[in-house]
Structures are given as C-alpha cells and as structure tokens.
C-alpha cells in the first residue's frame, strides 16, 4: 500500500517536474489521427487522450487533425509513418479514402490501431480495431423508450444529418427494434445534429403531435434542444433520450432534463492501452466492440467522470 502510494507520488512528481526533460528521453511516440478536431466527440476523445498522456510521461502523443478532409488526413498520417513513429491510432475520415495508409504502415512496420470508424482493408493489414456499434445503440435507445412509456404511444425521432453513417445506423437500429412494438408510432424530423435546427424541428413536431410520449434524438445536443421546447411548451412527462453521453449528455441527465443518453465510448484511453499492448508484443483481440450502455440518473456516476 505504502509502496503504491509512493509510486503514485513519484509518478505525479514525474509528470509535473520531468515533463520538459522527459521530452528528450522518450522512446515511444504514438500518433493520434482524428478526422476533425471540431466535433465535441472528437474534442472529448483528445482530452481523455491527454489525461492518459499525463499518466504516461514516457510516451509522447502527437495529434493529427484531418480537417474533415481525407487527403489532408492521409498526408498527415503518411508524415508520421515516414518518421517511423512507434504506432498510429487512427479514426479514418473515410473508410475507403484512407485505405492506402494500411499498406504504408505495414511496409514501415508501424502498428496501426483503427478506432471508431472502420477502414476498408483486410483484417491482416492492421493491428487492431476498437469501436462501438451504432445500430446496437439505436436498439438500446428503443428498448429504453419502451421501458419508459410502455407498449403504446407516439415517439418523435430527431435524426442527425441525412446520409451520415451514424445517422443511418442509429435510425436503423431504433426503427428495427420499434417495429417489434406495433402500438408505437415513430415520427421523424431532421435536426442535423445541431441545436438551432433541432429546436425548430421540435417546435413544429410538438405542434402537430401534442400527444407525444417520448423524444429520441441522434445526439445529446438535439435532445437538449427538444427538452428546451418541451419545457417552454409546458409538455410534461415526456421521456427525452439522447445519444453519445459526452459532457452535454452527462450534464443533461444529471440535471434531469434528459431521461437518458446512450453512451458512446470516446475510445480513449482504451485505444491507447491497446496500442501499448501491441507495442509490448502482446497478442490482442483483432476486433474489440465496447459496450454502449444507457446513462440514466442511476448509472450516471459510473459513466460520467
């Protein structure tokens, strides 16, 4: 016990005092390639990665921003591979456009860990994949809604940007599960994952459907917008379910404005731990799927930190 405490203090001291010095003595460098750094989900992931970095002063983390552009991300990751970085943790902007990177990494003998979005290459071409299933998230949300409102009633679905893979999958999972309950009617509106659009759509939706029993939104931002409209229009007892469970969703659930939010893991620090295992030569699962549990008042403390 004392030994562990001492070790912790030493670690902390190490992070604080030795950080500038450590930079020169590092051997391990991991590159983190995000498709963009403007989405809250991506920003949240980077923050957790930095927390992990603070706990591992011997590892240097280099972050590459894809700027929502496959070519930019591709050249950014190529540069990392050219300087023989220890490992690359990548969430591809596009599963096909980024495929050539797997070959480059293999030739340079740089382990490639894919997270969140898949890369369109054979399984032998990357070290490991870690992600979650958006279709399953939709099902989890649907089951939760049924649990809250029972077998009958009207549910408003606020969809994300049409055509985006997350939108398609979340919608599919939700509607598949809801189809098993003939008493439930789902009406869909598009909120583009944004607050203002969601508020406007929700205002129209509740004008036409005053008898709504639950709202399911493809992300927490839209769910919070829906909650605002319900509050303004004094519609009470409507279940509000969001998705992602980042800062916004956690706060929403804590304040009671959201009934629940389906947690979508940021994949950090799990993907970095995975990279370390690969670098240590351990055998790892090729495909890891992290759970997407429901964040509710009861489970809030477990998933929101």
């Amino acid at each position: 016990m004392t030994c562990r405490q001492m070790f912790r203090i030493a670690m902390l001291a190490g992070t604080v005092f030795a950080a500038p010095v450590a930079a020169s003595a590092q051997q391990v460098e991991i590159g983190i390639a995000q498709p963009n750094l403007e989405h809250p989900y991506r920003v949240g992931g980077i923050e957790r990665a930095k927390d992990w970095g603070a706990e591992h002063p011997d590892v240097k983390l280099t972050i590459v921003d894809g700027r929502r552009d496959s070519a930019t991300q591709l050249s950014g990751v190529e540069d990392l591979i050219t300087r023989h970085i220890s490992a690359v943790v990548l969430s591809p902007n596009d599963s096909k456009a980024l495929a050539p990177i797997a070959d480059a990494a293999k030739r340079a003998n740089v382990p490639l860990i894919i997270f969140d979005r898949k890369l369109d290459v054979p399984e032998t071409d990357f070290a490991a994949f870690i992600g979650s299933d958006n279709i399953e998230m939709g099902r989890v949300a649907a089951r939760f809604v049924i649990e809250k409102i029972g077998e009958e009633g009207k549910v408003i679905q606020l969809e994300g940007t049409p055509g985006a893979s997350a939108t398609v999958d979340r919608k599919q999972g939700f509607e598949e599960e809801m189809a098993k309950h003939p008493g439930i009617t789902v009406v869909s509106y598009v909120g583009h994952y944004r607050l203002q659009e969601a508020v406007a759509a929700m205002e129209d939706a509740v004008t036409a459907h005053r008898d709504v029993k639950a709202v399911f939104a493809h992300n927490d931002t839209m769910a919070m917008g829906a909650a605002q409209v319900l509050e303004e229009q004094r519609l009470e007892g409507v279940a509000t379910v969001g998705m992602d469970g980042a800062k916004e969703g956690c706060e929403g659930v804590a304040s009671g404005r959201l009934t629940g939010s389906v947690y979508y893991p940021t994949m950090f620090p799990e993907s970095l731990d995975l990279a370390m295992k690969v670098l240590a030569g351990e055998t790892v699962e090729k495909m890891t799927f992290l759970d997407t549990p429901m964040i509710t008042k009861e489970t809030h403390d477990t998933y929101c930190k």
Binding site: V187, A205, T207, A208
Partner: peptide, 16 residues
C-alpha cells in the same frame, strides 16, 4: 413550407 411539411410529418428526405 418547412413548417407545413413538418406539421404533416412528411419524410425528412422528401422535404429537402
């Protein structure tokens, strides 16, 4: 136009 299509719950894709 947005409003009436929403009130009628027209499929979001047909709305655009």
């Amino acid at each position: 136009t947005y409003n009436i299509l929403n009130l009628l719950s027209v499929s979001p894709y047909a709305q655009d």
